[in-house]
Amino acid sequence: MPTVTSADGTQIAYSRTGSGPALVLVDGALCYRTSTPNDDLAKALSDRFTVYTFDRRGRGESGDTGPYEVEREIEDIAALAKEAGGEISVYGISSGAALVLEAVHRGVPVKKLAVYEPPFVVDSTRKRVPAGYQAKLEAAIAAGKPGGAIKTFMVEGVGLPALMVLMMRLMPAWPRMKRVAHTLAYDAQVMDDNQAGRPLPDGRWSGITAPALILDGGKSPAWMRNGVAAAAAQLPHAAYRTLPGQTHLVKTAALAPVLAEFFATT
């Protein structure tokens, strides 16, 4: 298992496949290698790129040196970029999309970046994420209740009905999610105050100068698409594109050709 050493000494596990320019894929909440749609995406892109997938800190085979700060995850991506030869292209989905935006804004050097549906809540088209959301996640983990943290995330963070979450406990994926439930509080910190039902502040990612592709799905809810459009409007060199028929659970067959075209274009 290859690893890179982040700035604070944490070992970050990664996989590499394919050949060509370096492309790093960043997971969203509860995902890690062997339990992520990014594994299929890496395979689909490996004929044109050297694709790196990795376990975000606290997940899979990566370490989890505390205390957590968003800057530590940015350093993880920077360490992986150095391993990949320096300047990379990068793609992130969901909270991983928000992390990518923050990493590039804070100076991780990239040729291009693409993000799919960072879950920003910027208006009243859905209930805002409660102010005490992160603290509630941390309290559930501290009490030894990872299932409770997942329920809080699914109901208050994602907006799913509680009954649906109750049924999810019977699914094979539930034990895998429980193993990384403590990182939900990390994702809450990554999202910052951008799920509070208010417009994104002007200049929020003013440090991003690289070409960017901001994506959403045509069947995603209005609140999600409104947040994605608002993020695209904040970036001076961003193209905004909707994938017809797609939701937050975007299909690799719809996404991979779009990413391949964007990252391959000089």
Rank of each mutant, 00 (worst) to 15 (best):
E75G: 13
D47W: 04
A162M: 01
A264E: 14
T17S: 13
P244E: 04
P119T: 11
R176K: 15
E102Q: 15
A231F: 08
V24L: 15
T17W: 02
A188V: 05
P146Y: 10
S95L: 04
T36E: 09
I77N: 09
M191I: 05
T265W: 04
L99C: 10
A13K: 03
E138T: 11
L166A: 15
K127Y: 02
E73C: 01
T247K: 13
Y91W: 14
V70P: 08
V26I: 11
V51A: 00
E71D: 14
P221S: 12
V51Y: 01
R59E: 03
V155L: 02
V4Y: 07
P67S: 08
G20E: 12
F120D: 03
T209N: 13
E69R: 14
L45Y: 09
G107N: 05
V104Q: 02
K112S: 06
A231S: 12
A7D: 08
C31F: 10
G60W: 03
I12C: 00
P211F: 07
G218E: 09
P244K: 09
T266G: 14
T252P: 05
L213H: 08
R176S: 12
T17C: 06
R169E: 15
S206W: 01
A142C: 05
A233I: 03
M168E: 11
A79E: 10
N226K: 07
I141H: 03
A264H: 05
A114C: 06
M224F: 07
Y186S: 00
N226H: 14
V104F: 01
F262W: 13
D55R: 00
S46E: 12
E75Q: 15
M167I: 10
L25R: 00
S124E: 15
A264F: 02
A78Q: 00
T183C: 10
Q195S: 09
R241Y: 08
M224W: 07
V258C: 03
A212M: 06
A79S: 14
G107I: 00
E102D: 13
K251R: 15
P236F: 06
L101V: 07
P146L: 09
V122F: 10
K219P: 02
D193V: 06
K111S: 14
A131R: 08
A254D: 15
Y14T: 04
A233V: 04
T3N: 12
G85A: 09
D47A: 15
G96I: 07
A114T: 09
A173W: 08
W223V: 02
G9V: 05
M1P: 13
R57A: 02
G227K: 10
E261R: 14
I12A: 01
A114F: 07
P172D: 11
A114K: 07
R72F: 12
Q11P: 01
E102S: 13
K127M: 09
F263G: 04
G63Y: 11
A42Y: 10
